[in-house]
Amino acid sequence: MFTRLLLSLLLAPLAASAAPAAGAEKASGFILIGNRTGLEDPDLAAVRAIFRGEQAIWPTRETVLVVLPSTRADFSERFAQEILQLNRNGMQRHWLALVFQGRARSPVFLDSAAAIIDFVRKTPGAIAMVPASEPGPPRDLVLSQRR
């Protein structure tokens, strides 16, 4: 506890510059979907950590498979900024580096919300976010809604 407090004080200036733009923490118009993840309505920090490749195995013992919107998906930039606090280029660079380091399993990039929903539905361990404005994914895939 003391260590965390001390680090928080020391890193406060950097943390301030790393903080998202006002309102970004309120993300967003996305629905979190997953298949046999064992997650129950995780908060945004937990969601961000998952989509940054910081979780490898779900509580269900399924292997984590992150599904991301490709550059062809019209919501990829918004997803990158609101969920990962990166731009789209930064998101792809982050994952390329992570896989190159051998520290995470390769994500799958798909071109549309429909393709993402279909992939998650068929793939145990898969997790993704799709815009809330899209036609709804099956109820059993929805982990949380953030509007």
Partner: peptide, 8 residues
């Protein structure tokens, strides 16, 4: 269709 920036 899968479009991976880490192409297979």
């Amino acid at each position: 269709m899968i479009s991976n920036p880490l192409p297979r």
